[in-house]
Simulated scan of single mutants.
Amino acid sequence: MNMSPYICGILMCVAAASAVDVWNLQQLEAAKRGNDLTINVRDIFVPAGQTLNFEFVKPGTTIVFRGRVTFGYKEWRGPLIILKGRNLKIKGGAGHIFDGEGRRWWDGTGTNSGKIKPYMFYVQLADSSVRGLTIKNSPAHTFAINDCNHISINNVMIDNRDGNRFGGHNTDGFDVAKSHRVIIANSTIYNQDDCLAINSGTDITFQRNKCIGGHGIAVAVGGYQVNEARNIVIRGCRCIQTKYGVRIKTLLNGRGIVKGVNIENILLKDVTDAGLLIIGNYLNSGPKGEPTGGIPIEDLTVNNVRGNVLAKGTNINVLVANARNWHWSSNIQGGQRRLPCKGIPNGLRIPCG
């Protein structure tokens, strides 16, 4: 039945939004060239070694995922999905899921060695939103957020719980680099690495999120072309049975700056290793030696970080060489491992240990 492209009321006629359904990569490429303002992605299978690529989607487009998105198996870097563009709305429809079936790649070594594992999502968006996505069993890092500006990511579920039994590693939730005005909110992350890792950027907010298992929340600066993290807000989050609560880690002998980090209203529950960890001697292989001061940590606020660390862990550990203008309020209980703190700004008392 032919339908008019206009919907008419008593006083006026307006153009009706058009939509197209895509079931494979060929239909997606055709949809990019078309004029439809909504793309419904339905039960799509992505062949091995190929990418579900939303680059060059027209500005103003809404992308809705409906059904199950799956991928063929290949050892490669990926990404499995690219979300790239301006003024896009990306949504998860009822019952949809991105199933990475990560167990096919997992071997306990993550991206460090062993099988070559693909990243799940590469995100390079501006003036856009991502809402309501459900992701299961990422082969490795889930969201690589790079060169983004003014985006929001809301109500995302990352469920990599199977990795606890089957060798998941480096299954980061959100990795953020060279991005500005980013909000990640109201999401739940089960994984085996950082729930959030901010490598660089400005005006980044991570709020009302729940991190379960994995390594907790991190601002990790150094080792990249851009080594500045400014105006970072981490608030209203829960870290449950994570290895760490919140960390700021700067690279040994690195150069850059961490300035204006606010960590507030964070609840820790049964953290195993450290509730709050701030170090200036970070290496991928683990902290080493004395901290270096090439990446100062300035204007840090810790406010109402509370909860417990298990007995073998430590509540707070600070080991830095260049720190200025810190404010601190925390109430972390339970950790019995005592580690000395070093480099705390003059006049500030922190309940280390």
Rank of each mutant, 00 (worst) to 15 (best):
Asn2His: 11
Met3Glu: 11
Ser4Phe: 04
Pro5Ile: 10
Ile7Glu: 11
Cys8Glu: 01
Gly9Val: 08
Met12His: 13
Ala16Gln: 12
Ala16Thr: 05
Ser18Trp: 07
Val20Gly: 07
Trp23Lys: 15
Asn24Ser: 07
Asn24Lys: 05
Gln27Lys: 07
Ala30His: 10
Ala30Asn: 12
Ala30Lys: 13
Gly34His: 00
Leu37Gly: 09
Ile44Asn: 00
Gln50Pro: 04
Gln50Glu: 14
Phe54Ser: 07
Pro59Ser: 12
Thr62Val: 12
Ile63Asp: 04
Gly67Trp: 00
Arg68Val: 10
Thr70Gln: 03
Phe71Val: 02
Gly72Thr: 00
Lys74Ala: 15
Glu75His: 05
Trp76Ala: 10
Pro79Lys: 04
Leu80Arg: 01
Gly85Leu: 03
Ala94Gly: 03
Gly95Lys: 05
Asp99Gln: 05
Asp99Ile: 08
Asp99Tyr: 10
Glu101Asn: 15
Glu101Val: 02
Arg104Met: 06
Thr109Leu: 11
Thr111Arg: 14
Thr111Cys: 08
Ile116Trp: 02
Met120Cys: 10
Tyr122Gly: 13
Gln124Asp: 13
Gln124Tyr: 02
Asp127Cys: 12
Gly132Pro: 11
Ile135Gly: 09
Asn137Arg: 10
Pro139Gln: 08
Pro139Gly: 11
Ala140Trp: 02
Phe143Ile: 02
Phe143Gly: 01
Ile145Phe: 06
Asp147His: 14
Cys148Glu: 01
Asn149Ile: 04
His150Val: 11
Ile151His: 04
Val156Gln: 01
Ile158Asn: 06
Arg161Gly: 12
Asp162Val: 07
Gly163Ala: 11
Gly168Glu: 00
Gly168Trp: 03
His169Trp: 11
Asp172Thr: 09
Phe174Tyr: 13
Ile184Trp: 01
Thr188Ile: 13
Asn191Arg: 09
Asp193Leu: 01
Ala197Ser: 13
Asn199Ile: 10
Phe206Leu: 10
Gln207Gly: 05
Gln207Lys: 15
Gln207Ser: 14
Lys210Asp: 03
Lys210Glu: 11
Lys210Gln: 14
Ile212Asn: 06
Gly213Trp: 02
Gly213Val: 07
Gly214Arg: 06
Ala218Trp: 12
Tyr224Thr: 14
Gln225Phe: 12
Val226Asp: 13
Arg238Gln: 15
Thr242Met: 12
Thr242Ala: 15
Ile248Thr: 05
Leu252Glu: 06
Leu252Phe: 08
Gly254Glu: 02
Val258Gln: 03
Lys259Ile: 04
Asn262Leu: 12
Glu264Asp: 07
Ile266His: 05
Leu267Tyr: 12
Leu268His: 01
Asp270Met: 04
Val271His: 01
Asp273Cys: 04
Asp273Ser: 14
Gly275Tyr: 01
Leu276Glu: 00
Ile279Leu: 10
Ile279Gln: 07
Asn281Ile: 00
Leu283Ala: 08
Pro287Ala: 02
Pro291Lys: 04
Gly293Tyr: 11
Gly293Gln: 08
Gly294Cys: 09
Pro296Val: 03
Glu298Phe: 15
Glu298Asp: 12
Thr301Ile: 15
Thr301Gly: 06
Val302Ile: 15
Asn303Phe: 09
Val305Ile: 04
Val305Asn: 00
Arg306Val: 08
Gly307Glu: 04
Gly307Leu: 01
Leu310His: 02
Gly313Pro: 08
Ile316Val: 13
Trp326Val: 00
Ser330Asn: 07
Ser330Trp: 03
Asn331Ser: 13
Gly334Leu: 06
Gly334Phe: 05
Gly334His: 01
Gln336Pro: 00
Leu339Met: 09
Gly347Pro: 05
Gly347Gln: 10
Gly353Thr: 05
